[in-house]
Design a protein around this nucleic acid. Structure first.
Lengths: 347, 347
DNA sequence: CTGAAAGCGCTTACAG
DNA sequence: CTGAAAGCGCTTACAG
């Protein structure tokens, strides 16, 4: 092992105390300019890089925020069906964290056995963002006893861990309500079907919004989704292909998320059906890919950036006041009208 | 502040020493089952989450790997032109790190002033991967004195920091050579142009490969790229639009990366040109988006997964033996033939 | 197999 | 403004 210089070496070299070195390096305190110079010179000469661990331990602050998301990919081919939504969340969080001076510690965790990894993450950061259902409730509760935790997206049950963690969700119901209404009112479709995600509160809330849009217009409402998929592109393709091979021909498909919609696009093309002329399709999330496929995907966009910013500020607020009551905050969504619903003239 | 239990509380509760608690929690050592049970019970009851900082300091190991990439987006609209290649790198690294039991600490860093952030990251991990040119050489050298560093993608100059960090690159030259050869030999195009990225070794190496393919076939070779862009979609679109509005009509475009190629596709469509019938286009990187655009992008795919795995193992090797000579490893690439080169029958 | 105790490398009251 | 010294919460030889 190479020998790494410590504060002591730096202090000796600069002929000051370690306290002074620490002050100079932290930037804030008023230190005699002469000493400051000497410290910087010593740091440069010795190639000093402070130990984060020692610093964190002494200062009780890591300058790091954590993000745990589910490892849906597992050991399979990661390139086959990546979760683009996670990419956007990671990027949004990294950006928000960095703006506030934090680095981001990320880890994909299996719900089941990765308690170690979760603990590794939780023990090393000042606050933690967890995507819904990534971490078992008991583990989450324990972690929340140490650092602030924000759960992103819907919890499995309404009050599970509700008391100890903050929740940040998007307007799933309102978004699905609005995009369904668009298909109904602007395009006049009546035969609009819903392709659900896996058993999740997000998919459920979106289905409710879809139902409400139909109900409000006095249209018949399906008691349950017309197909159930798993939020992946491959799953969406399979689900819709099945529907089609069963002989169904709905006029429009409201999909629980963008990747499901992307899969639907593929399945429809495979069956020789045109989108949106024969079948209209909408998604949910607003992943970037949706702008690039043809037809471009009409969707309900989540405010990725604001989600990250909000999560970070919720963490900071609780860091400042641990007595805060747990909160549930809902962020608005925006319907992005593109081509797949039938709005643009398609060549 | 809530009061967090420590090893001491756990030890007292379990009526064992802190050494025993530590052993039980680290999993390895042989501890009397009875004690083990008591420790687990105490941990559960107290809601104990070990301090990562204390653990790291004592064990001189963080179980965390770092990744620094350039912050190209800055404070502009992140959603306008994200760097998909980074997403893939982040995902690949996270996955590889996790497989070896590490979490990933990520931070986008400005070349100029974010030395603090870089230090925050470097001080908290066991090894660091840096995308080329993210971190100034002097800073990198200093960091390399503390932990192993792997630089991903081409360094600015051949020997800059060469001695202190390992390098991991892909076969830029060979990949460009091969895909250009494909356009030349299989499709018989002769008028093949190169759209470069910014001044970077990667773009330069790809241009060389392109040139070599032409030279080898006795075709005239452009001494410099026909257009210079910046690796972004918007930049690629602008560069190609300019070319077209200047009246140029190359038969094929070899683009320095996928996003440039995506921009080219847009520019060509905007000019009423068909791809690949009027103009063929190829990219470099193999980002997922390339499979989804129409026509699907023919490209040179980087082995994202293997890149991550390799970076992690290089870090581990150097962790095990700090006396290792610095290495330069080149990973192979694979030409992915899709539609934009003209290979598939396009309806 | 187990425990007492030193030590990891910083920061921060506390005096001065 | 500066320094001596305690302390942050773990792990790990070292004895036993």
């Amino acid at each position: 092992m190479r020998t790494v210089p410590t504060v002591y070496e730096v202090a000796r070299h600069a002929r000051v105390s370690t306290a002074t070195v620490s002050r100079v390096l932290s930037g804030n305190d008023r230190v005699r300019p002469e000493y400051r110079e000497r410290v910087f010179a010593a740091v440069a000469e010795l190639g000093y890089v402070p130990s984060g661990a020692a610093r964190d331990l002494a200062a009780r602050r890591a300058g790091v925020l954590g993000l745990c998301f589910p490892d849906l990919v597992g050991d399979q081919d990661i390139e086959s069906d990546a979760m683009f939504w996670y990419d956007e969340i990671i990027r949004g969080m990294e950006r928000a964290a960095r703006r506030r001076g934090y680095a981001l510690l990320i880890a994909a965790c299996h719900d089941t056995d990765d308690v170690d990894l979760v603990t590794t993450v939780a023990g090393r950061c000042d606050g933690l963002v967890v995507l819904a259902r990534t971490v078992p409730a008991p583990v989450l509760e324990r972690i929340a006893g140490r650092i602030p935790v924000v759960m992103l997206a819907g919890p499995r049950t309404p009050d599970e861990v509700a008391r100890v963690v903050d929740h940040l969700v998007v307007a799933n119901r309102a978004g699905a309500f609005e995009v369904t209404g668009h298909l109904l009112d602007v395009h006049g479709y009546t035969d609009v079907w819903f392709i659900a995600g896996p058993d999740s509160p997000d998919s459920a809330a979106r289905f409710e919004g879809y139902q409400a849009a139909l109900t409000e217009r006095g249209l018949p409402v399906a008691p349950r989704p017309h197909a159930i998929s798993d939020f992946t592109t491959a799953g969406g393709r399979r689900a819709v292909a099945q529907l089609l091979s069963d002989g169904h021909r709905p006029r429009a498909l409201v999909c629980a998320n963008d990747q499901t919609a992307l899969g639907a696009l593929t399945a429809l093309a495979g069956a020789g059906l045109r989108v949106p002329q024969d079948v209209a399709v909408t998604g949910f999330d607003g992943i970037q890919l949706g702008q690039h496929v043809r037809p471009a995907l009409t969707t309900v966009a989540q405010p990725m950036r604001q989600l990250g910013e909000k999560a970070v500020s919720m963490l900071e607020e609780r860091l400042a006041d641990s007595a805060l009551a747990s909160r549930l905050i809902e962020m608005p969504v925006r319907v992005d009208i593109r081509d797949s619903c039938g709005c643009s003239a398609v060549p």
